[in-house]
Design a protein around this nucleic acid. Structure first.
Ligand code: MN
Ligand code: MN
Ligand code: MN
Ligand code: MN
Lengths: 219, 219
DNA sequence: ACAAATTTTTAGCTTTGTCTAAATTATTTA
DNA sequence: TAAATAATTTAGACAAAGCTAAAAATTTGT
């Protein structure tokens, strides 16, 4: 598999996990930042190779082999992200770009040993689950902060948007994974929240609240 | 720079260090395991980019920029090899292939931090010097084992041939970097040697002896 | 149901990096 | 030094991965 093929497979996997039922050529083109015509070409190639189901005008989906491939690339991507943060001291907003390159390195042993070096982490620096060697993907039983009722207490376990801009915003406001959050007040007008993070009180917009994954703590 | 361009630059650098004065199209083709016509094409492209001096039929050489580029790739290659051995427990005959891929990852910060994680190593697992951030290349003041006179004592500091076959041969015979070696006898007929490695006596062919770098110990 | 708008595909072109076969230049050898 | 041999370049082709523009299919709106 070429880097490009791997990137398409990964994109299709992410589109599929995001809940869309039928994955259109345009959707893939947008995610890949390429043209629909290029996508059509690639879908034919991936279909040849048995990685996707593809019928003209009908959208695309991953075959079992395609899914396995996607999970293996995502596993590598996320393990490398953990490595960059834990072993090399990268910030969580710096790792994605480099992991995009590292995820394409081909060596089963490399990734197994890396997993071991990192003590078999279950989540990447953004709280996303790391697929196992055999493609088992842990299910985050988390919800979005914005959906909690007033008075709830929860732990921050992940970010939905892991763009550098958002991550740096969180850094500036000292919001990190593991923080305990309590919903104090919800503004009807714009759905913004007043929350308590550890000891600190903070006002965050609905936008922010809907990009933080939390796990409720039962009291 | 593409992976392919980087690989050509590295090949030319290695040919140049191996003492040949004029680097022919055929020599590059052989090293790259490609066809001379492909080399000609690539030399034109690299020349365009200011990385090599190239005149039809005259052979090729690296420009200062080309040399700097080569050293940077070699630095990455060797640092990754150290990482694979020291941090992931790879054997020294398993690292080259993976390092061939890793050397193309683009991130200045990654390589600086890796260097730091490894405590700024000066040599790779095969005894080859690791170029510095600014392209300084340490000079091995070593010689080949086969050239020592009888009775000399020396430390094994590197291998000339770092193919997996040779490295595994050394493993099987428990020959490793750092071993102390004494020349006991030299066979006139085939230049084979009887040597003492640490406490053990061993008979090695001229082939083997000419692929081990040693540093003489003055008595 | 039919026209308009949108989506998707096709056709044809580009670049990179490769190849084979043919032509050209350089080097050896007789 | 002239022919033979070897090295190198050129010409033409191909596959991967992209693009633009045009054609075709699907979906939407009235
Ligand atoms: Mn990422
Ligand atoms: Mn990628
Ligand atoms: Mn190597
Ligand atoms: Mn390489």
């Amino acid at each position: 598999m070429t880097h490009s093929e791997e990137n398409y497979i990964k994109a299709i996997f992410h589109l599929a996990s995001s809940g869309i039922d039928v994955i259109s050529t345009n959707a893939v083109a947008e995610k890949m930042e390429t043209k629909p015509s290029s996508v059509t070409d690639m879908m034919k190639r991936l279909s040849e190779k048995g990685l996707v189901h593809y019928k003209k005008y009908q959208g695309v989906s991953l075959t079992p082999l395609g899914t396995k491939t996607a999970l293996s690339i995502i596993r590598k991507h996320r393990l490398w992200e953990v490595f960059l943060v834990e072993k090399l001291g990268f910030a969580w907003d710096e790792v994605h770009e480099v992991a995009e390159q590292l995820e394409h390195i081909k060596s089963e042993k490399l990734i197994d040993k890396l997993d071991e070096l990192l003590s078999f982490p279950k989540f990447d620096p953004h709280g996303d689950p790391i697929p196992g060697k055999n493609g088992e993907l842990m299910e985050h039983d988390s919800q979005v902060l914005g959906q909690l009722p007033i008075g709830s207490v929860a732990l921050c376990v992940g970010v939905k948007d892991s763009s550098a801009v958002f991550l740096r915003f969180l850094d500036r406001n000292s919001i990190a994974l593991g923080n305990k959050m309590k919903i104090l007040e919800k503004e009807e007008f714009d759905n913004s929240l007043r929350i308590l993070i550890d000891e600190r009180e903070l006002h965050i917009s609905q936008q922010i609240a809907s990009n933080l994954y939390v796990k409720k703590i039962e009291l």
